[in-house]
Amino acid sequence: MANSATTSRLSQTMANLLTATRPGQTVWKRLKKNSGFLFVAPAVLIFLVFGLYTIIYSFVLSFFRWKGSSIFSLFPPVCEAPGCAFWGLQNYKDFLYEDKGVAKLFWMAMENNLVVALVVPAATVLISLLIAIALNRAGRAVPLFRTIMMLPMVTSGIAVYFAWSSIYLSDGPLNAMLNAAGLGFLSAPHGWLGTANLALPALMVVMIWSSVPLAVILYMAGLQTIDQELYEAATIDGANSWHMLWYITWPLLRPVTFIILIFAINNAFQGFDLPLLMTKGGPANHTQVVGLRIFSFGFGDDLQLGIASAMGWVLFLLVFVLSLINLRLFRPATEETRE
């Protein structure tokens, strides 16, 4: 839907350009017509210089076997044997199916990743929307609350990991609270991060925790843009709070939801620092994620940058497709209505 809108606009601008080329119009005028590009030019330039090469490089590298000691470069094209070898599609084949051990781990990680990518974005949206609405109504009376709520954004990474790890310990606050509430049967006697089926959910809670503040900021900004008259009109029509939430707030916040979802999905697939620091992918690979596998091949024990690149590109394809689906679901009609 949104795609077709994009393409139709694209063809329209192309048509504009074609009509612009008819004789009589000067080059100056044509340049002027496209002068909006000047605003974008610095961004494009900086990408051409510092982004393009790295992307092409990592794509080409995914067809080589290389551990980073001999020289591998595109300009000039060098792949210095024996430390570097052209490997064709072997990297992709290896981790997708051929090398049993590596492939098994990859698919296990992918499975965990899909769970994470489903649960974390959904929970982030739900929780942060509710908090934003509550905060928005509470108004400016609680700026302190806002500041505190954003502390997760500034707390240093390593402190976050250790703090949460200590919460999850067998004698940590979480188990203590459950026991005190008479819910001892729910507690994890071997620690939350050390129990096979609890480790991944425990990690997801931390992921949600760290992604909520930014989502709240975005939702609050979004809520400010909603016209209060809409609510007044709805009240006159006899709508209750949930109706207004469902029929006014939620649809009008769709562009914000879209942003948050892209952010969250991307993080869910590319983030790996949490499992790296808190569980190392364990216990028994229950918190393996694809990002962690890539990290292991890119910087870690398995060092083979060709496979790291290849996995990276498979992940790219997946996230790209998911983002397109997200685009279809949440990119709102606002753009079309604007035209």
Binding site: H190, G191, L193
Partner: peptide, 8 residues
């Protein structure tokens, strides 16, 4: 120890 799988 209790948290052995979460102990580095």
């Amino acid at each position: 120890t209790a948290d052995i799988l979460a102990t580095d």
